[in-house]
Design a protein around this nucleic acid. Structure first.
Lengths: 147, 147
DNA sequence: CCGTCTCTTTTGACCGGATCAAGAAAAGCG
DNA sequence: CGCTTTTCTTGATCCGGTCAAAAGAGACGG
């Protein structure tokens, strides 16, 4: 995979460095990792890696279009490598786990709001909130009824 | 309006206090205000109001279902009074202005992801990102092409 | 293969938004 | 009016993330 990442970094005009390869490798293994998780996991490959370096790497990757930043409300930012496809996220209110989902109707039904109010919309970000199978079982007796 | 708020607070089991009425009044005038804006504006009616008090009031309102908290990525949390209807938001990447939009198809087309992966979904949060009419005019020559 | 330049990483301080905890004040009720 | 409970105030604290300067490593030319 390092070969692939090397190519992709070069194609994006970015230098190939150990911190970047380490972060990319972690993102490949953890599809929705937050910065702290990335730091911890990436240190397996690069023990002296600092949190700030990871922030720098992530920002470079996002700017280059190699990674995408997702910020669920009330949670630290997550990073993922799947870019370019219009997929969305399913977030568990209890454990915070994030799962990718394709848009409900196949193409992009939500990309056109009923009234754009003069806006030029370039992205529709959809977050489905709920409870995953595991947490639903755990909290079956005290499920909050919302909305 | 105070009369209405008084009734709604009582109906929700909350005591009627000046800070709460002040915050509700501000939310009525600013449909998508952040905490800082609320503090500043509410001080017109209650000069000694502290930021922490506003946070407390907002949390109480959200818990009681009188207000809703919205957290666009990269921006401080916003609060709005429109609750219960399944409306979404249009956010300008340049100036940050937020506009309400009804869901594209009238009812809730996005509430059912194609594959829920065992999740029980209770809310679909949709954020449309783009540029508002004013900012589109301002940045017409350097519009970023994304996605 | 080495020197040089530029981009990255590292280190450290710093910032804003938000939360937590304890005492003072006010709302609600009899 | 006085009591009880909720709420507001005050202050400290936490966390994720950013900013700036200096050390280090990648990439290109010789």
């Amino acid at each position: 995979m390092d070969t692939t990442w090397t190519t992709r970094l070069r194609d994006s005009g970015l230098r190939v460095t150990r911190p970047r390869l380490a972060v990319l490798d972690v993102l490949g293994a953890h599809p929705h990792a937050d910065a702290d998780t990335i730091v911890t996991a990436a240190r397996a490959a690069h023990p002296t890696l600092s949190p700030q370096s990871v922030y720098g790497v992530l920002q470079a990757l996002v700017t280059a279009g190699l990674a995408r930043r997702v910020e669920p409300a009330g949670a630290p930012a997550l990073f993922e490598l799947r870019v370019g496809d219009n997929h969305h996220h399913l977030v568990c209110r209890a454990c915070g786990v994030v799962v990718d989902v394709d848009c409900a109707v196949g193409y992009t039904p939500c990309l056109t709001p009923s009234d754009a109010s003069g806006f030029v919309v370039d992205e529709a970000e959809v977050v489905f909130w709920g409870f995953c199978a595991d947490c639903r079982a755990d909290t079956a007796e005290s499920a909050p009824a919302q909305g």
